[in-house]
């Protein structure tokens, strides 16, 4: 299979997020970036498919802070090629990003063959415009399914599981080429030691690609970003872990549990 995985960088929400002075973007000074969680699962699913059915895994990302490390990590995990498109991901909505990726696949070096499967994360935490995979599939005229949690291959087709709610899953058959939005891989994403990533940084290369998209279309009129006004706030239990535990016990007693 000709597997492509699209990786997107998002702010690490473990850090505090602040709004920049323009009121329309995040303050990047203390921002740390990481690869979007579902994208990591998309990569894992691609690597599993390659191990089972052969082929190549190409990881592709747009220019973004700390993206090189993510691409090298993907190579260390077993991806065959890493490509970075020079278009800046920052401030690019999902629609615009899809236009860049569509150009990448239409004009090269991305190639849609009868064996091509494009995997992206099902959704990202900043998908204000919706899902990249769906925009891309529609722009390329390829079949699409999101919230995918398992991909297998049988008789030349893909057998794909999609999550609904309450643990219910649906099984779908999809012909190649196709685009899938992965929510979780069939196994947890593999771990790769830092030493191996370092070694790959010395031996492998990220290929840089320019894609001919003039200023990508901006569709949404963002008025402002802000910290949500909080409707309520929990009654805070303060103190040492010991004191907190004691106060939780009191609450449990009040609720009739103890």
């Amino acid at each position: 299979m000709n597997l492509y995985v699209l990786l997107k960088m998002v702010p690490d929400t473990v850090e505090e997020l602040n709004v920049a002075a323009d009121g329309k973007s995040l303050d990047t000074e203390f921002l740390r970036f990481k690869v979007s969680d579902p994208d990591e699962h998309a990569l894992e699913q691609a690597l599993i498919l390659k191990e089972k059915h052969g082929g190549t895994v190409t990881v592709v990302a747009l220019e973004a802070p700390e993206v090189d490390e993510v691409l090298f990590t993907a190579l260390a995990k077993g991806a065959d090629r890493a490509l970075k498109i020079t278009t800046d991901q920052t401030r690019l909505g999902a629609f615009a990003a899809a236009q860049v990726y569509a150009a990448f696949f239409k004009a090269g070096p991305g190639q849609i063959t009868p064996e091509t499967l494009i995997l992206a994360g099902s959704q990202a935490i900043d998908d204000l415009e919706g899902e990249l995979a769906a925009y891309l599939a529609e722009t390329l005229g390829l079949p699409y399914l999101g919230v995918v949690c398992n991909v297998a291959r049988a008789n030349g087709k893909l057998i794909v599981l999609k999550e609904f709610a309450g643990g219910l899953r649906g099984q779908f058959e999809i012909g190649l080429p196709a685009v899938l939005g992965v929510q979780s891989a069939e196994k947890p994403p593999r771990y790769v030691p830092v030493a191996k990533v370092r070694a790959v940084m010395k031996s492998a290369k990220i290929e840089t690609v320019e894609v001919g998209v003039s200023e990508p279309a901006v569709r949404l009129q963002l008025e402002r970003l802000y910290k949500p006004e909080v409707a309520g706030r929990a009654q805070m239990l303060e103190g040492t872990p010991e004191e907190i535990a004691e106060k939780i016990v009191e609450v449990l007693a009040k609720q009739g549990i103890l």
Binding site: A94, F164, A165
Partner: peptide
């Protein structure tokens, strides 16, 4: 989860802007 993906496909076909979440 059921409706995920319908919006972006419709947005691509109609040119309408989409607001998520």
């Amino acid at each position: 989860n059921i409706s995920l993906g319908i919006g972006p496909i419709l947005a691509t076909r109609t040119g309408l802007p989409l607001v998520n979440f």
